[in-house]
Design a protein around this nucleic acid. Sequence first.
DNA 1: TTGAAAGCGATACCAA
DNA 2: TTGGTATCGCTTTCAA
Lengths: 336, 336
Amino acid sequence: MATIKDVARVAGVSVASVSRVLNNGPKVSKATIEKVTKVMQELNYSPNANARALVTQKSTTLGVVIPNLIDPFFASLAQGVEQVARQKNMQLLLSTGLVSAETERQAINLLIERRCDVMVVHSKKLSDQTLIDLANKVPGLVLIDRYIEQIAQRCVWLDNLEGGKIAARHLLALEHKNFACISSKYQIDDPLLRLKGFQDELKSTGVMIETKLIEFGEPTLQGGEIAAQNLLASGKSFSALFVYNDAMAIGAISTLEDNGFKVPSDISVLGFDDVLLSRYSRPKLSTLNYPVEQMAMQAANIGIELVSKQPTNPDNKNCKHIPRLVKRESTSYRSN
Amino acid sequence: MATIKDVARVAGVSVASVSRVLNNGPKVSKATIEKVTKVMQELNYSPNANARALVTQKSTTLGVVIPNLIDPFFASLAQGVEQVARQKNMQLLLSTGLVSAETERQAINLLIERRCDVMVVHSKKLSDQTLIDLANKVPGLVLIDRYIEQIAQRCVWLDNLEGGKIAARHLLALEHKNFACISSKYQIDDPLLRLKGFQDELKSTGVMIETKLIEFGEPTLQGGEIAAQNLLASGKSFSALFVYNDAMAIGAISTLEDNGFKVPSDISVLGFDDVLLSRYSRPKLSTLNYPVEQMAMQAANIGIELVSKQPTNPDNKNCKHIPRLVKRESTSYRSN
DNA sequence: TTGAAAGCGATACCAA
DNA sequence: TTGGTATCGCTTTCAA
């Protein structure tokens, strides 16, 4: 592959000149520009980004760390970062495979070795302190879907607690009185907070959920099916069901309908996340919109802001996002 | 950030030695290893991948070019490549934004500038010749979801024609006699071949599809809904419907049921691709499985093979994949 | 407006 | 087993 030297030699100029036309340098004669440009085409020259990164000390690379790409939620996250990347003329470097703190750490290390200018990290397993240390070390690091007080301005997160409350209010407004919940069996923040918010809000109006009407399961379609079976098996009745995420909600609906319950006329079901799935299910799922893609874009932009020499505008306080209720077909007024 | 020189200086050895322990070099004393390792930790040293890439002339980077990450189909593709990447200790560089030949070309150029060792490219807009030229220029380039005869060994593709035939055979075996089709309005290979295969197979048993019972639409949920409306509006009756992809199929089912037709008892519906959606829809969608993820892994591995100095084994002739029928709930025996 | 040369951070060859 | 050093491809002063 042709190098800058080849171009310089063939064009009969110095490498400095070639470099100048390559970067639209300030002082180059039209003649040189034309000559060099022509030779670059002839030789099919393509500048070596690695060499460039080495000398300029910036890689124009945006790194993302997510568990996987299969989950549409994370795919959207990556897509958001990607959008900013192409908008800013940067490239996307992706590191997946978050199973443990160990692998999360590895993924981040890879991005550091690549000298990513900015990185958007989704980490659930790494400790607060580790992340804080990392953030201090890597100027362009931004956390998404996680809130750590000490580095609050570098966390873009969703208020899950408020989400739970919004869910409760919606169902309450539909005059429901008997509630059930399906949550994730994984004891991380998100499910815990969503459930807590839901319960808190109900409590404030004097309503309690019976323990038997709270089920925990795998946060998948099947998990939702099974959880709903258990709910039904409890013998307790309910007319409104708040579910941890859309996949579980769809699974739950499936079980409910198989058992003769109509959604929403017999039972209202409310999901969370508003992934693509929710628009495709029948009945179309009412849910809480989690604007990951925009949040990812914001995170990427904050990262870029952080590494730019520009005076940081201190107005990006607004990293907290509130989920938005999306009423579709799976929730309605209590009928019985 | 600490460099190899810093480490060498602090450890009181030469950079050569540091480099050796970094790469598990062949001849290093235990003492040096320990000393250097300790200093590396102290200084929080992280080798610069760009510098490395420059001198070794290999970037340990796997590039992927896809239209976007939102479409689960492409997310799976990327995930497949990612899997190979981490397995081989490489990184994933992602380029999206395929709208035109122009942007496809740009995306590929970016990967070239980054000196990606191997790249898996999904291109629909670039011409055969352009791709052939590119392939000759970039040794590690592999095409996915496209077949070009001149570079057949570097194309990993699905036999859409055969897919259409399999679909026809399935519906025929269920004793259907009156068929309808919904295809994509975009005149690229995939929809054309799927439809052709379907029609060819029917024809071979003496069955024809009326023109009015072939609809073209946007390959989305809404597109499927609209296409099904048009089908219904034609007044012609049919008991089996073959749809271009799963999203459209789910949209079509939605319309059919809204109009009082039961799926599959009144009308059998068969999709294509077997994306996540198809398992979540009700009734669960019968479809043809498109093993993108595995195909992407194969493509990545072929690329790696191509750039390795190892004698290329010529047995990867098997780049053609046949979709597999997945019977779920949306197809059944003709009842009327 | 142009060119010569130093240097970015690593690897690898050649001596010692 | 170690160290010195040329080199990878490019950018960026500093002089001319």
